[in-house]
Design a protein around this nucleic acid. Structure first.
Lengths: 157, 157
DNA sequence: CAATCTTTGACTAATATTGACTATATTATA
DNA sequence: TATAATATAGTCAATATTAGTCAAAGATTG
């Protein structure tokens, strides 16, 4: 019944309309801001809230002359739901090395990760690699890395 | 969408186009500057920002009559010494996201990393993933993860 | 009314462009 | 051969051109 009620939704729909036709959109932030009569930083808000990796978008940008913001749509993989439930149920906002290793190991056993891929992740979240004095900080950081990596693996590219 | 709208990107692409065909490219700075209608020092800027060792290039030059700038592509897979010095000198104990991304991209281009492997590493060292308040701490952590991961891959082979 | 989402703008950071000045190598000339 | 003239490239800082961050204010929703 009702259309979009705020300008952020309008901008979101505009960009997604383009992405329905093309692989990616490349904009000049101030152009879009002018077009919808909003301040430039609102474009960042729209992107941060509506074009996340969880939703299947990858965003790249460059400042300076000829700068741009590029939004790319990426496709969900078959394993996406496995990774998704793992993320919401198991990882949380803190995870110790033992539990994290078990997750990666099971993903390897299930064929979601190749051996080299698993080894890369294990190296990245190893406690000696992170080398953080505080155990809680270490576990929080490990959770963030795991979430970032597994979210990325939900998509192809 | 559109191509680059800044002249530095255009010059970069021109030079990389030549390097796609040849082992190296040798230019006279003022020729290229004239060709693209920029001041000569902009050629130095393009080289300094886009043909660094972390991008996989080595640059040599000579001044005076018959002077030149020569850009050579190095293969990090073939040249273990270059990779070594790159990790020691460029990564060291701190590295920002921009430089780290350039290194991973080079390793992918040279066949050291597969695309999925590169994406995993990029996700792990992304500043939003690490989400550390202090920039120095973030860069230190990124360096440890990068070195930890690459060393793990190295022992594999 | 409390929580959440949106809008705004001041401030920050990154990148690109330009030109004056410096450094170095080669060539011409005394 | 020594020196001067010429022909290169390098450095650096000022300015211009973008995008990013953050927090306060305002609006909406449950």
């Amino acid at each position: 019944m009702e259309g979009p009620t705020n300008i952020s939704d309008v901008i979101e729909k505009y960009l997604k309309g383009i992405l329905a036709e093309a692989e990616q959109v490349e904009i000049r932030r101030s152009d879009i801001a002018d077009q919808f009569n909003v301040v430039p930083s609102q474009i960042n808000y729209v992107i941060k809230t509506r074009f996340t990796i969880q939703n299947g978008y990858i965003v790249e940008s460059k400042r300076g002359g000829g700068g741009y913001i590029r939004i790319e749509k990426v496709n969900l993989l078959a394993d996406a739901d496995v990774l998704d439930s793992l993320l919401t149920d198991v990882v949380g906002d803190s995870i110790n090395q033992h539990d994290a290793f078990a997750i990666i190991n099971s993903l390897f056993n299930d064929g979601v990760l190749k051996e080299r891929e698993a080894n890369i992740i294990l190296a990245a979240i190893d406690k000696d690699t992170l080398n953080v004095a505080d155990r809680d900080v270490e576990n929080t950081l490990r959770a963030r890395i795991l979430i970032g990596v597994l979210n990325r693996l939900r998509f192809e590219d």
